[in-house]
Amino acid sequence: MTVAQAKPKDLPVGANLPFIYREYSAERLKQALHKMYLIRQFEEGAEESYMRGLIHGTMHLSIGQEASAMGICMPLTNDDQITSTHRGHGHCIAKGAEVSRMFAEFFGKTTGYCGGLGGSMHIADVSTGNLGANGIVGGGIPIAVGAALTAKRLKSDRVVISFFGDGANNEGAFHEALNMASLWKLPVIFVCENNGYGMSTSMARSTAVPNVADRAAAYSMPGVIVDGNVLSDVAEASHEAVRRARAGEGPTLIESKTYRYRGHSKSDRNRYRTKEEIEDWMTNRDPIVRYENELMEFGIIDKAGVEAIREAVAKEIADGIEFAKASPSPEIRDLERYVYTETV
């Protein structure tokens, strides 16, 4: 089963076109740009609200990594599932969540996806297949394997994506999970978003192999490396992995090489990397700019079209924040609700 359409008529033809231009309609391609902007502006909005004291705690922003979240989710249906990470806002939006309810969660309100109990680090939308971000590095990886076991046992056509960072590949859970997934040929796809660092620790200083994808060999599954800032490349790798998974051929490990612009969290002094490195990624490899230019080059969208998307997104963000502000806070008397399942 695939949600992608056959080669659309409204696009330039040619075998050399990047994957997504052969696979998707102009409408879906524009939607992808819309969502990438939505992710970026959502996080900018969250960051600003945090600075203004409207959001407490901490948060991990994925600004600069939007193509990775979006590209992986493009071939997924609403029935497919993901497990996400502490840097999970992009995954949540790409999978289909509403930004208003995400803001409400960050503001600690009852209308939030977790009723104000989870916050940024536990953002989830089970209704669109997001089983949740995670406060534990690597915590979601075996859970995705479990969800894939369910999919296989119930013979649903579902695939499960496990997002995680480069840092997570050194946790035992990663290795144990990959082994079982491969052993049992489960419909799960391991997506390592390698942004170069786990907090302050570079891949070179933490990991004995140069690429996380190299680990795939040890678990007898394909290991694929893609430029995580090129939407089409990410989507293409995801398509093939999803095809394999649905066909019962087992898991794939995709390493999506990307970069985070912001500090690790709100307490980062950026001492472990240079300004030049950050600026280079921001000015030369921004995933949104890159995709937008491509769309314009192929005549799929024009300047006015891009402007319309930006404006629509800005309004969605502003409305979302208003919704969050106006929403009620949970009551202290409900503190113990949800610790266990209520019995009637």
Binding site: H56, G57, E105, G108, K109, C114, G116, L117, G118, G119, H122, S329, P330, I332, L335, E336, V339
Partner: peptide
């Protein structure tokens, strides 16, 4: 501490 995980909402968090 209350017989719950620690909630995110700041008022609830204090109450735990």
């Amino acid at each position: 501490g209350a017989e719950t995980p620690i909630p995110y909402n700041p008022d609830l968090e204090k109450a735990t």
